[in-house]
Computed example of a mutant assay.
Amino acid sequence: MSRRLTPAAFGAALLALAACAETPAPAVTAAPPAPAPAAAPAPTATQVDPNRALPIFFEAWSAFLEEPARVALAEVATYIKANPRIPVLVVGYADPRGSAEANMILSRLRARVVADTLVENGVPRNRIRILYRGATPGFESLESRRVEVRVDRGQR
């Protein structure tokens, strides 16, 4: 039986993924970092919606996956393996701070880390297409520091 991800469960999953990023190296800043939101359960394979992207969030200047993100990716991998006709698209992003070149490299690294984690969980590498977009203009928040895992509806 297949269940759809409810808006409340999707929001809880976003909060859980937001709490899973590494603390960045100390930077020159006037304000301390905001506390991470309370952890919520990661989505399960039965909650994966192929019509929505699963965002994996990162701290600024980090490509480190915390355990909750790894758990969520393991669940997504389970879904992908159970549906062998679904091609996977992994798209990396960064926030606009820093140079365009650094943000492109970081978004590529984040996408590669997520794709490699899916492969570690049994998803064949030839089913994964990786894109990286660099900075997300206009956003310097957590939403811009993400990788999206979604069904690849583009050309192979």
Rank of each mutant, 00 (worst) to 15 (best):
M1D: 05
M1F: 07
S2Y: 12
S2L: 11
R3N: 08
A9M: 12
F10A: 15
F10K: 11
A13K: 06
L14A: 03
L15D: 10
A16M: 02
L17D: 13
A21C: 06
E22P: 03
A25M: 02
A25H: 02
A25Q: 09
A25P: 07
P26T: 02
P26S: 04
A27D: 13
V28H: 06
V28L: 10
T29E: 10
A30Q: 13
P33T: 00
P33Q: 02
A34C: 12
A34S: 15
A34I: 08
A38R: 14
A39F: 15
A40H: 12
T44E: 12
A45P: 03
T46D: 14
Q47V: 02
V48W: 12
D49I: 03
D49F: 02
N51A: 12
L54K: 02
P55C: 03
F57D: 04
F57G: 03
E59Y: 02
W61H: 03
W61P: 00
A63Y: 06
F64K: 08
E66K: 05
E67A: 11
E67D: 15
P68Q: 05
P68L: 04
P68R: 09
R70L: 11
A72T: 04
A72I: 06
A74L: 03
E75L: 04
A77T: 12
T78Y: 04
T78L: 09
I80D: 12
A82Q: 10
N83R: 14
N83I: 09
P84Y: 11
P84G: 14
V88K: 07
V90T: 10
G92V: 13
Y93D: 04
R97I: 10
G98T: 02
S99H: 13
S99K: 14
S99C: 10
E101M: 06
A102P: 02
A102W: 00
N103S: 07
M104L: 03
I105V: 11
L106K: 05
L106S: 08
S107A: 02
R108H: 03
R108C: 05
R110F: 04
R110K: 15
A111Q: 00
A111R: 01
V113S: 01
V113E: 01
A115M: 01
T117E: 09
T117L: 07
L118T: 07
V123A: 06
P124I: 00
R127H: 08
R127Q: 11
L131H: 14
R133K: 15
A135C: 01
T136V: 09
T136W: 00
P137G: 08
F139K: 10
F139V: 08
F139C: 09
E140I: 11
E140R: 04
E140M: 07
S141T: 15
L142H: 04
E143P: 11
S144L: 01
R145W: 12
R145A: 10
V147E: 01
E148I: 00
V149A: 02
R150I: 05
V151T: 15
V151N: 06
D152S: 08
R153Q: 13
Q155V: 13
R156E: 11
